[in-house]
Design a binder for these strands. Sequence first.
DNA 1: TTTATGACGAAAT
DNA 2: CATTTCGCCATAA
Length: 118
Amino acid sequence: MELNPHYLKIWKTVQAIPEGKVSSYGQIADLAGLPGRSRLVGKCLGYIPENGVDGFPVPWYRVIRSSGEIAFESGSEKYQEQRSCLLQEGVTVKGRRVSMKEFQWQPDLSELLFKLVN
DNA sequence: TTTATGACGAAAT
DNA sequence: CATTTCGCCATAA
């Protein structure tokens, strides 16, 4: 499972989410060229390499459900971590949810273009 | 090879 | 809102 090409593609796509913005599992799947595979995105975020990808960390915490909810169980360790990471970079989290209307990443043309180059 | 599983999603109730 | 139901599909074992 180490060098799964889909995982690599997904991790890199997640790295493109800017600070202060969030994306959904489904959106990442789409942008990574894997439509319909939102569940795969969730799964592989649990296998992020210790040292990051291409020398950069993978901001897994910027990925939430399309509903705006944090996927982890309230109160769990991961839930707390994700929540504080988001708050720390300016994303408002009310209870367990984020306003997608306000914070969802809307990739612009140059960002998409950048992605095409690999 | 087959099967159960999942950090999902959308729609219906 | 909350809960259910069903579709989804590559993995992992």
